[in-house]
Design a protein around this nucleic acid. Structure first.
Lengths: 153, 153
DNA sequence: TCGGAGGTGTTCATACGGGAACAATATCAG
DNA sequence: CTGATATTGTTCCCGTATGAACACCTCCGA
């Protein structure tokens, strides 16, 4: 008898979580290697890209929301990037609580370097999959990640 | 001309990595919540299960290999579990370098509590997927994680 | 106007992982 | 037997993320 359609907690679910963890660690290692020559860390790279994708200099809270992390995490990342002169903390004149994050020229230069590094890293980890498989995988992950905040919390 | 079969580095690959990260963070949060009443952390839970799956008390290096982490990571986890009396470090008489990790009775009890918690956590994160989709997902992740030792380095 | 509710960012402690350096032990070559 | 080498586990430092406590600022209602 197989529980072929309804979810129900097969033992394989634990395995799935396991593989997810392993894979993410691998991804992190690979990204780290590829980003080393650029001089930033994977999370900083994500942050930098996120800053660039905003039209206007985003606030810390904007970045936290976009990256789906707590604001605390953003602070450290901005600290690191600011130390390397890739972003700048700019006070918001209209609300003295908020800090806006601006790209510097060096930051924009880093972004250009990043493109190929990110490509290579992604290719590195996704190598075993065909493009079709990647699309399927992305669909499944989207279903898991998006599903909206209707989950009791 | 679509690159419909060969990989080639579409921009979606970066998105895929992104979703993977998000999902894993979510998984970690969920596991943490479910394991709180048991009194251990997600990584400790993984370690405990791994210890149990060995026939004989494994060495630190065995655990590191099985979990695919560096030995350094195992040290901390064992520290935590030992502080809670769930495992015991036992010197190996035949080789004074190695430490063997034994489950205690409390550890075995914790393992029983863990089963339902892990189920619930997995179900929590996988809820949006049917069993078929989970199987597909697991297949894809396996292909990415396993991919065999033909990887350079 | 003033006083509290609530937003905004940052410090503190903790969990988890990786890399490098290191001490102790084992093993093997001469 | 002795000295080089390899294995095993551990300490040190860092990257990444969370949660709690906190300081500051805004803004609304009395």
């Amino acid at each position: 008898m197989n529980t072929s359609d309804r979810p129900g907690g097969t033992d394989a679910d634990g395995l799935l979580a396991e593989q997810l963890l392993r894979l993410t660690r691998r991804l992190h290692r690979i990204q780290k290697r590829h980003l080393e020559p650029v001089g930033i860390t994977p999370a900083q790279s994500r942050l930098l890209r996120t800053v660039a994708h905003f039209g206007e200099p985003p606030r810390m809270a904007d970045l936290a929301a976009r990256l789906e992390v707590v604001p605390r995490a953003v602070t450290s990342l901005v600290d690191g990037l600011e130390a390397g002169d890739r972003v700048r903390r700019v006070p918001d004149p209209s609300n003295r609580r908020v800090v806006r994050i601006e790209l510097t020229d060096a930051g924009r230069a880093t972004l250009r370097e990043l493109r190929s590094a990110r490509r290579a890293a992604a290719e590195d980890i996704l190598a075993p999959l065909t493009v079709e498989q990647r699309e399927v995988l992305e669909g499944l992950l989207s279903a898991l990640v998006d599903p909206g905040p209707e989950r009791g919390c």
